[in-house]
Design a protein around this nucleic acid. Structure first.
Length: 107
DNA sequence: CGTTTGACGCGAT
DNA sequence: GATCGCGCCAAAC
């Protein structure tokens, strides 16, 4: 297991991945919340950087992470793929945005 | 070892 | 709503 990039070590990456794994299907989480739940309040960028490093074959629900505005932050062509995955889970995009009041996952 | 960059967030203007 | 500035943390330069 050379990949500690998912759930191996005890650093920021693995903590963020652990939280990410909890996000249920059909729901989304913001970068800020993801970082906060992982123990890094106000470090939204850390979450984004961590996601960017995920291997393409990851089983983590990376697509359920969007920005606080309900928009996809991932640049094309990834954005199209992410949106497609989210819509498959039943999430509705209205004018390029997700209704955060409805889909935002906050335990 | 200092600076820049990035799948960000939020208050202030 | 659009912009700006600052905070945060790791990796790349």
């Amino acid at each position: 297991m050379g990949n500690n990039a998912q759930t191996g070590g005890n650093d920021a990456t693995s903590r963020i991945c652990s939280v990410l794994a909890l996000v249920p299907r059909g729901r989304v989480i913001t970068y800020g919340d993801l970082a906060e739940m992982a123990g890094y309040p106000r470090a939204a960028r850390l979450a984004g950087q961590t996601l960017r490093k995920l291997p393409p074959d990851t089983k983590l629900p990376w697509h359920r992470v969007i920005n606080a505005q309900g928009r996809i932050s991932l640049p094309e062509p990834g954005a199209q793929r992410q949106r497609d995955k989210l819509e498959t889970e039943g999430i509705v995009f209205l004018n390029g945005r997700v209704d955060m009041a409805r889909y935002r996952w906050r335990p």
